[in-house]
Each structure stands twice: as structure tokens, then as C-alpha cells.
């Protein structure tokens, strides 16, 4: 446990200068995309929650009208998430062939989402679905801003394809793979990690937006701080796993997982207990303070989604404790 951040424990310690540079570029790109995805996810959830609200209230026609107007938000999120997947072609690369395949596959997916988005917005504007290219709502420049965002991803997709076909001969990616690639129960593993990532993204957006939109006054200070603390914990766990744990050398991972998981469990339990105590003090807190950043809050009477967010770090920590204990025994 000593010297958790000792350079020698990390994979990059054994890399040459060029490899380190490449590794850093990928890490920075992942962080930038994580931030972009956090905000895109929150926007998408807002559109989605309203549409779900329409369908559960029996107005399928309103849901269709709403979703068809807001398709650019959904595609924007998909483009961003697929770019994260694209970066994983570098991050976890067992061999060159696999990386090549993954790069091409995900670049094409990004180009498809971006292309559909651009065509959809232009078509929608020409057909009158959008009253103009800057119709406004939810931003002053919508849907033009979504179109520009798509163009950015067209550039990313094209660059990835060019790299896969030509550039990598001149500039080969030479950083070894980080983190284990699961082969057993891969489907459930991917499902679990995806869910965890989505909760983490949601809490990232929720935390930063929450700093500005949560009402700390009116006697709700305890609940406001507890909610932000829960989001902060959720927001940190996933990037910590991705950018710290997976960057460690294999033998170090085995050594630190169990103690780190115990710390994570402690922190999660503190945040969870704090949340419930604060909720007990402000029983109307979720509606009056945190509504804007609570998940699925369109259903005003449902606490379950919020409970899931509160409990996610505990669940993740317990899984990590079990895994860490197993790794120790081996």
C-alpha cells in the first residue's frame, strides 16, 4: 500500500519517450471525452426523461413528436461514447490486428452517427420540422450547434480511418495494453461496466451542474451537501479505476486491489449513510433541492432510481473487495 503513486508501479515507467507521449495523448483524450460525455449524457437524459413521461402518461404521439425533434441529442451522445470505445482500441490492445479492426469498426460507427445527424438536421430544416437552423431551445443555436458537434466527430472519424490505413505505418502505436481484458462472462462484465460508466457519467454531469443549480439555502444544506458528496464519489470511482488502477503493473494491481477496495467501501458507506441521514432531515429535499440532477425525476414519486445511484459505489466496492480477496489468495 505504500507509495501508491510511485512511478515504478505504473506501466508507463517502462515505456520509452515516444510511448509515454502516445500514452499521455490517449489518457488526455479519454478525460476530455469523459467530460464531454458527462454533459451530453445529462442533455440526452433530459430529452429521454420527458419522452418517457409522455409515454407513461399515455401520450405516445407527444413522445414521438418530442423524440423526433431531439434525435440530435441522442446521436450526439452515441458519437461521444463511440469515440470513447475508439480510444479503447489503443487503451486495451492485445495485438495490432485487433486494434486495427476495432479502430475501423468504431470510426465507421462514429461517421455513421455523425452523418445521420447532419443529414437529419439539414433534412429537418428543409422540411420545416425545425423552423430554422437556429430554431432555439434548448440552446439558442439548436440545431446548428448539434450539426457543428457532428462535424467535429466526422473529423475524428476520418482521422481515425486515415490513421488505421496510413498514418500508423509512419507513427506506430507502441504502448502495451492496460488492464485485463475479460474473457469469461464477457457479456455480463461489459453490461456491468457499461452501467457503472453511465452512472459515473451521470454523476459527473450532476456534480458539476449541481454545484450551480442545487439550492444550498432554505434549510436544505445537509441534503444538498450529501447529494453532492454521493455524486462526487460516483464521479471519481470510474475514472480512478480507468486512469489509475488500469495503469498499474499487473503485480501491483494484485497487491493493491483489496486494500483499495476496502477504502472505497468505507468511503461509499460513509456517503450512503450521510445521504440517508440528510434525507431523514430534509424529507422534501429531493424535490426541492436536487430535482434538476436526480435521475428519472420526471416520475415525481419515484425514489428508486436515486437509491440506485446512491448505492452504486457500495455495490462496485463490494465486487472489488471480493475480487481483491480472490486475487490475494491466488
Amino acid at each position: 500500500m505504500k507509495n501508491l503513486f510511485n512511478k515504478e508501479n505504473f506501466l508507463f515507467h517502462e515505456l520509452d519517450r515516444n510511448q509515454r507521449k502516445q500514452s499521455l495523448i490517449v489518457a488526455i483524450a479519454l478525460i476530455v471525452l469523459y467530460i464531454m460525455a458527462g454533459f451530453t449524457f445529462m442533455n440526452m437524459l433530459y430529452c429521454f426523461a420527458d419522452a418517457v413521461g409522455s409515454i407513461v402518461s399515455g401520450s405516445a404521439d407527444v413522445m414521438i413528436k418530442d423524440l423526433t425533434r431531439s434525435i440530435p441529442f441522442f446521436l450526439s451522445l452515441f458519437m461521444t461514447l463511440w469515440t470513447v470505445l475508439l480510444l479503447h482500441a489503443f487503451y486495451r490492445n492485445v495485438n495490432e490486428e485487433r486494434r486495427q479492426r476495432s479502430l475501423k469498426k468504431n470510426a465507421i460507427a462514429i461517421l455513421a452517427f455523425a452523418g445521420v445527424n447532419i443529414l437529419y438536421i439539414l433534412g429537418g430544416t428543409i422540411s420545416g420540422k425545425y423552423l430554422s437552423l437556429v430554431e432555439g431551445s434548448p440552446s439558442p443555436l439548436f440545431p446548428l450547434d448539434a450539426l457543428l458537434y457532428s462535424l467535429l466527430f466526422v473529423a475524428i472519424g476520418v482521422f481515425a480511418l486515415i490513421y488505421a490505413k496510413k498514418l500508423q505505418v509512419k507513427y506506430p502505436y507502441a504502448v502495451p495494453s492496460r488492464g485485463p481484458i475479460v474473457t469469461r462472462a464477457r457479456f455480463f462484465y461489459c453490461l456491468g461496466v457499461t452501467f457503472w460508466m453511465l452512472v459515473s457519467l451521470f454523476c459527473f454531469g450532476g456534480f458539476w451542474m449541481g454545484l450551480f443549480i442545487i439550492d444550498f439555502k432554505h434549510g436544505y444544506a445537509a441534503y444538498s451537501i450529501a447529494l453532492l458528496f454521493v455524486y462526487f464519489v460516483n464521479m471519481l470511482f470510474f475514472p480512478f479505476w480507468e486512469l489509475y488502477y488500469n495503469e498499474l503493473k499487473e503485480e501491483k494491481r494484485k497487491e493493491v486491489l483489496f486494500p483499495l477496495a476496502l477504502i472505497a467501501l468505507g468511503v461509499s458507506l460513509v456517503s450512503t449513510i450521510f445521504y440517508f441521514v440528510a434525507l431523514g432531515l430534509n424529507l422534501d429535499g429531493p424535490a426541492n433541492v436536487g430535482f434538476g440532477v436526480l435521475p428519472v425525476a420526471f416520475a415525481a414519486n419515484v425514489n428508486i432510481a436515486t437509491l440506485l445511484v446512491v448505492l452504486t459505489p457500495v455495490i462496485v466496492s463490494i465486487i472489488a473487495v471480493v475480487k481483491g480477496a480472490k486475487m490475494r489468495r491466488r
Binding site: 424529507l283 422534501d284 426541492n288 430535482f291 419515484v302 425514489n303
Partner: peptide
């Protein structure tokens, strides 16, 4: 007329206010 509130800290549902 408010929004909603939980009857207890662990209520799975909220009541309308």
C-alpha cells in the same frame, strides 16, 4: 402546493406535496 416528499428516508416512493 410544493412538489413531493418522502415519508421516511428509505421510502421507495415519494408522496405529492
Amino acid at each position: 402546493s410544493g412538489a413531493s416528499f418522502s415519508e421516511t428516508a428509505i421510502s421507495p416512493f415519494r408522496d405529492y406535496d
